[in-house]
Write a protein that binds this DNA or RNA. Structure first.
Lengths: 202, 202
DNA sequence: TGCCAACATGGCAGTCACTGCCACTAGGGT
DNA sequence: ACCCTAGTGGCAGTGACTGCCATGTTGGCA
């Protein structure tokens, strides 16, 4: 056979084995998402997901630490994508831009899947808990100073609320722009603090 | 024996059976807190807690839905106490006052236990996840409009950060005032939004 | 005082998430 | 043709949590 790697066109950037791994991973994710959508995550067992994906239950756990994680890949990818764009201390408008840019690079199939996941999250309590846990763990890992942490989590609240609102509207068939909604949510937060600092100066 | 109830002085406001229930509940909570502090929540089994509290494992689950919940009673009580003081739309300074008032009524043994729990939370990842879950569920139950929800969760972020900071300082032997810290955290949030609304008007 | 109903608990068996271990197979490099 | 390793499956085990039933305990009431 041909030596893979350097001379082949960069179709998928990975060697054969890795491509298989990614494929199985995707299979499991799809199966989980499908089953969760139909029966809810708490009515679905790992054995079912594994069977639907054509792997053994043991293998399932080699790809995902918990059954909930199997459905949250896209969600995690989105968070990560935003996080990598927001490094160090930044202003709120910069974050809004980062969200917009990230949304742009997710356009197409990924955005559909993200929508699907977020819709699921709005109805599936168990899954929502898991998503919250992932989010919290990410925040906890950062371990910066108080200011960094508070800013991080405050933005997270806005992002989560915006995603939920966005998913709700889209699920109802309406049109909705995530960036616009995110801006609105930030505005709500902003109004909370109107005059809060002034008061102490006077 | 005497007929309990109407003619007795209102020592504890409850009948005998309820008092026993509360006692067992307290026993379990104490046992859980103790074991978690010493070995961490993930190294502690329900059977251990139950044995330490002098009840059967089956009974344990009649009092608490998960083993983590057993240690979070005080934490929950504190949140509930604040929440009952903050009804309907309120301003941030009013919330600060509510926190101060709640802290006042927790003075003494309850505040020590709250401190113990929050210190635990800073080191025990598993327990922290559970606390986050409880918090999230409370938010999710409210189900108000977007604005209510965002405000709720934004304040929650501040409260949680303040509690962690407070616990960290107190654990290090330093003195720290929760209300003061909470105010600082709000100030951090406030500064995030400085000029955010202005920009769009100009 | 004695009986009954409701409550509180314990024990048991079962489900399910998740893990460690070992054995097997299939690719890929030499 | 040979090994070597990554990927997989199976199996047994732990531990959280639940439903069911049997037992003891308590409070009310005749």
């Amino acid at each position: 056979m041909l030596a893979s790697g350097s001379m082949l066109p960069v179709t998928d950037t990975t060697d054969l084995r890795e491509r298989r791994r990614l494929a199985t991973r995707a299979d499991i994710e799809t199966a989980a998402l499908d089953l969760f959508t139909r029966q809810g995550s708490d009515r679905t067992t790992v054995d079912e997901i594994a069977a639907a994906a054509g792997v053994s239950p043991r293998t399932f756990f080699r790809y995902f630490p918990t059954k909930e994680d199997a459905a949250l890949g896209t969600n995690r990818a989105f968070d990560t994508a935003i996080a990598t764009r927001v490094r160090g201390p930044v202003t709120l408008p910069e974050i809004v831009d980062a969200v917009a840019a990230t949304l742009g690079e997710f356009d197409g199939a990924p955005i559909d899947r993200l929508l699907q996941v977020r819709c699921l999250l709005n109805h599936d309590d168990n899954l929502r808990r898991a998503a919250l846990r992932m989010e919290a763990e990410r925040c906890w890992e950062v371990h910066g100073d108080l200011r960094t942490r508070v800013m991080n989590e405050t933005v997270n609240v806005a992002m989560r609320a915006a995603l939920d609102e966005w998913a709700t509207h889209r699920a109802a068939g309406e049109d909705a722009d995530l960036v616009e909604i995110f801006r609105e949510v930030c505005a709500i937060q902003s109004r909370m603090f109107d005059g809060f600092l002034m008061k102490r100066a006077s």
